[in-house]
Design a protein around this nucleic acid. Structure first.
Length: 567
RNA sequence: CGGGGUGUAGCGCAGUGGCUAGCGCGCUUCGUUCGGGACGAAGAGGUCGGAAGUUCGAAUCUUCUCACCCCGACCA
């Protein structure tokens, strides 16, 4: 491709709306064009890169024994009502009507349709297992699209679905998919972490996320350097360090004027925060929930939501707190009645805690569970944090920010039972098919790759997903010799199957061309110039190399190939 | 949905009631230049997001509306 023919232009200035690196660079280098909030057109450079990612995905999915299909975006709403997911997706579902006023949706995912496909094609255990996949456009009316391609409302997803007759077979499919995913990320040169994850509302027991570490990521992963334990912070568990056992002392009231926070309470009483109990108020499906946890810990809302079995969970509003008769800043579970009380086991990892007295400006010392109060649920709702100890090996946990670029989970039989996808087992018994599902956001993977692979000058494309391998720069192309040599090299590279982008602009200064080459971030840069030609050489430089090397023109193809192999 | 912000040329921005709406980049033509974002000259390019209102007069004031961005609850 010649730069003079490429439709997209690079921008000189950073786009001001782009806060994250991948967004900024993709706009600046002319990869994407925004159409609406969270809706983008992919320009040639992005599209080439996306196709490469898709091809890698296809090869690995095919190799893992899954079969590619293509399902429609447009689906009858009725299908979504059968499984109750119209309500579950709620406002995230794009809904429309056809000309006869029949309700339709733009599908955010494809469990319903794929289950029906399998239902009409699978009758016997002999037909199983089956894994189907597609690379197809999904629509989700996200509350807040953001960060370029990281979070959008229309996006290409590779979604795969496994259908198995028993748990062992499901495990095998799950492992095969997990391995395919590892292969995909490895081939894209992306060091992705596989983390235990929360399985969500309909998920079964196993779920893993694939997280690409990057400081601007939306997710936090807890990792253990000792045993390799890796889990999303939403799911991760850690050992809460127990305090020295003490003799239980009698409750004692203290006046604490103006003390509203755990930090203030600890300071006022001159005790560590771990010697206090924190009270947090939530609203779970409209009802106020009283949550207690040791003062030095934070509540994990995902764990809490799962423990409560509610659909909607949020912090209670001030009005709700007051209406429930609770005293924010001085609350404790002691004497609380008529409100669901949930506590983290950390309240037993110590004794003689300082707590609220449920009266303004008053706290109590020496609160002990279960002596002084009762709870309805005592279950792990603590947010694991770096610095805490690994529950498996005891090593100190670490935290990493990252972007979720894949998610796999075991679905179980929810869809097959709801939609009647059954098979006949060896004993002639009807059984629901056991399902798993496996997703990769293709555009997000590209954005995440750029997020992780860039420097202050621009993108640094991993070679396997770079739109072109070589950026051929002709300096002073008005010089006939340079022009001839560049054109010849350009032809020669393509003849040898090396995808080359040729900066054939006549009148751009060298600085402009170098800056654009750095910005676009192709793996190898070649420079043809009067200076180089006079020395009988062409200059070759990897995107992150400090210095260029010089090779004779006839050795260019070989030198490029060597650089690409090393990349 | 709550909070904050922005809509003026392809892009980035200035313009708080008064002449024909301006600057930088980019773009076109000609010439010079050519190793890290060159220079000169001459040009093209605008329903000032939209609607209604106030006014002799509105980019500017009022009301309504639409869109987009950023921060929080969701997800690939």
């Amino acid at each position: 491709m010649r730069l003079t023919q490429l439709v997209s232009k690079t921008l000189r200035a950073d786009p001001p709306e782009a806060e994250t690196a991948s967004h900024r660079l993709m706009v600046k280098a002319g990869l994407i064009h925004q159409v609406a909030a969270g809706v983008y057109a992919y320009l040639p450079l992005a599209w080439r890169s996306l196709r490469k990612i898709e091809n890698i995905i296809r090869q690995e999915m095919d190799a893992a024994g899954s079969q590619e299909i293509l399902m429609p975006t447009l689906q009858p709403t009725e299908l979504w009502e059968q499984t109750g997911r119209r309500a579950a997706f709620g406002a995230n579902l794009f809904e429309l009507e056809d000309r006869r006023n029949r309700p339709m949706v733009l599908a955010p995912t494809h469990e319903e349709v794929v289950t029906n496909i399998v239902k009409s094609n699978v009758q016997s255990y002999r037909d199983l297992p089956v894994i189907l996949y597609q690379i197809q456009t999904k629509f989700r009316d996200e509350p807040r699209p953001r960060a370029g391609l990281i979070r959008v409302r229309e996006f290409a997803m590779k979604d795969a679905y496994s259908f198995n007759s028993d748990d062992a077979s499901l495990d095998a499919s799950y492992q095969a998919m997990a391995q395919a995913y590892r292969n995909i990320y490895r081939r894209c040169n992306l060091p992705v972490l596989m983390a235990e994850a929360d399985s969500g509302a309909i998920g079964g027991k196993d779920s893993h996320e694939f997280i690409l570490p990057t400081p601007t990521g939306e997710d936090t992963v807890i990792t253990c350097p000792g045993c390799g334990y890796t889990a999303n912070a939403e799911k991760a568990t850690a050992v809460v360090p127990a305090l020295e056992p003490e003799l239980e002392l009698p409750l004692e009231e203290v006046s604490t004027p103006g003390v509203k926070t755990i930090a203030a309470l600890a300071e006022f009483l001159d005790i560590p925060e771990a010697k206090t109990l924190k009270a947090v108020f939530y609203s779970g499906d409209g009802a106020v929930i009283f949550v207690t946890i040791r003062g030095d810990l934070e509540v994990n809302e995902v764990k809490l939501k799962n423990a409560l079995h509610v659909n909607e969970l949020r912090l209670a509003t001030d009005e709700e707190v007051r209406a429930a008769g609770l005293v924010a800043g001085s609350a404790s579970p002691i004497g609380i009645e008529g409100i669901r009380r949930v506590a983290d086991p950390s309240i037993t990892a110590g004794s003689n805690f300082a707590v609220g007295a449920n009266r303004e400006d008053t706290h109590l010392r020496n609160a002990n569970y279960p002596r002084d109060f009762d709870v309805d649920d005592l279950t792990d709702i603590a947010l694991a944090q770096p610095g805490q100890a690994c529950a498996i090996c005891g090593a100190t946990l670490e935290a990493t920010r990252g972007v979720e670029v894949g998610h796999i989970f075991k679905l179980g039989t929810f869809f097959s039972e709801t939609l009647g996808a059954m098979y006949l087992d060896q004993n002639g018994q009807q059984q629901p098919i056991i399902m798993g599902c496996y997703g990769i956001g293709v555009g997000r993977l590209l954005a995440a790759a750029i997020e992780q692979n860039h420097d202050d000058k621009g993108m640094v494309f991993p070679a396997p997903i770079a739109p072109y391998q070589v950026h051929l720069v002709g300096l002073n192309l008005n010089d006939q010799e340079v022009s001839t040599a560049s054109e010849e090299l350009y032809r020669q590279l393509w003849d040898n199957g090396i995808e080359t982008l040729f900066d054939d602009r006549l009148d751009q200064a060298p600085g402009v061309k170098f800056n654009d080459a750095d910005l676009m971030g192709l793996p190898v840069r070649l420079v043809v110039s009067p200076r180089n030609l006079a020395a009988g050489v062409v200059e070759i430089k990897g995107r992150t190399d400090d210095h260029a090397e010089q090779v004779p023109p006839e050795g260019v193809v070989e030198a490029v190939s060597a650089k690409l192999r090393a990349a």
